[in-house]
Amino acid sequence: MSLIGNILWFIMGGFFMGLSWWLAGLLCAITLVGIPWAKACFVIGQFAFLPFGKEAVSRKSLTRQDDIGTGSLGLIGNILWFVFAGLWLAIGHLMSALLCFVTIIGIPFGLQHLKLAGIALAPIGKTIVDKHVAASM
């Protein structure tokens, strides 16, 4: 079922939101300071291309240990991200979700956009895993 959802998602607009994540990643990668955010953008951009069957989870809950992105530096990074790019990507996903919710068949796609909008607000310290891995946590 995830394969069909991902194919329809990609054709019906997920491609554009994935490209917007990658564009944000390219803009972040221009500076050396933005490289951690660029890495997050490329990982989540790939997730935005094919979101069905996957979940974003905290690396701390997955590995049971802190790292640089799940501690206080990750919090600072997420605040900076929210101010400069996260809010805009979240608005893009919210607008796309509203368009999807207009039709009954678009509701699953709208839910995926809402999931991605939440991730857009604070992506540092998250990783993408299969749904069954996220359910076992």
Rank of each mutant, 00 (worst) to 15 (best):
I30A: 15
A120N: 11
L19N: 12
L114E: 07
F84D: 09
F109A: 10
L111I: 10
L75N: 04
A29K: 02
T103P: 01
I4C: 07
A38Y: 11
A24H: 02
K115D: 09
A56E: 01
F42E: 11
L50E: 10
G125H: 01
G86N: 03
N6I: 13
P36K: 11
D66M: 11
W22P: 07
G34K: 03
L111G: 12
T31N: 12
M12L: 14
P123D: 12
G25M: 08
D67T: 07
V129D: 14
K131N: 03
G69N: 04
N78M: 02
G34W: 14
G18A: 15
F84T: 04
L62R: 05
Q46D: 15
G125T: 06
C28H: 05
L26H: 04
Q65T: 01
S136Q: 08
K131C: 02
W22H: 13
S96Q: 11
D67P: 03
L121V: 13
G13W: 12
L98H: 09
I44F: 15
I124R: 11
G118S: 08
M12I: 15
A29Q: 10
W37L: 14
T31E: 11
A117D: 13
G71C: 09
M17K: 08
P51A: 07
G13M: 12
K39D: 09
W21D: 05
D130W: 08
L26Y: 04
V102K: 07
G18W: 12
G86W: 00
I91K: 02
S20P: 08
G106W: 07
N78W: 01
W88M: 06
G5Y: 12
F42H: 05
I7T: 09
T127M: 03
Q65A: 00
D67A: 12
G92V: 06
A120L: 06
E55Y: 07
H113N: 15
H113P: 02
G71I: 12
F82E: 01
W88C: 05
L19M: 15
G86H: 04
A48W: 02
L27F: 09
